[in-house]
C-alpha cells in the first residue's frame, strides 16, 4: 500500500508544482491546495500506514492493546490541515482583493503595480 501511496503523493506534488508554476494566480491557489494535501499525505505515509487501529484507548484500559497508528503524526496532520485552511483563506481573500483592484490575475501584469 505504501508503494501506491508514494505514487499518489508523487503525482499530487507534480500537479501542485505544475499549477504553482503558472502565471495565473488562481492556478497558483489551486496548486497550493494540492500541495497542502500532498504534504499531509506525505507525513501520514512516512509515519506508517496501519489499518483499523486508531489511537483510541478502550474505556477502563491503561493503554492500547495490540498496536496503534502513530498518534503524533495524526496530531501534526490535524493541525496542518487547519493551518493549510488558514493560509488558503488568506490567499483567497488576497486574490479577491488583488483582482478587484488590478483587474487581472496574471502575475506578470501584477508585478508592475504596487
Amino acid at each position: 500500500m505504501t508503494t501506491m501511496m508514494a505514487i499518489l503523493i508523487g503525482c499530487l506534488y507534480a500537479a501542485a508544482i505544475y499549477m504553482m508554476l503558472r502565471r495565473s494566480m488562481v492556478k497558483l491557489l489551486i496548486g497550493l491546495i494540492l500541495l497542502s494535501n500532498a504534504a499531509n499525505l506525505l507525513i501520514f505515509t512516512v509515519a506508517g500506514l496501519e489499518r483499523g487501529v486508531p489511537p483510541l484507548i478502550a474505556k477502563g484500559a491503561e493503554t492500547v492493546v495490540g498496536g496503534s497508528a502513530d498518534p503524533l503524526a495524526q496530531a501534526l496532520i490535524l493541525t496542518a490541515i487547519v493551518i493549510g485552511f488558514g493560509v488558503l483563506a488568506f490567499a483567497v481573500v488576497l486574490l479577491h482583493r488583488a483582482y478587484e483592484v488590478i483587474r487581472t490575475d496574471d502575475m506578470n501584469e501584477m508585478k508592475g503595480t504596487d
Partner: peptide, 14 residues
Amino acid sequence: IAIASGTVITLLIL
C-alpha cells in the same frame, strides 16, 4: 520540472 519533482518525492518516500 514538476514530473521530476514528483518522481523524486515518490522515490524518497519508498
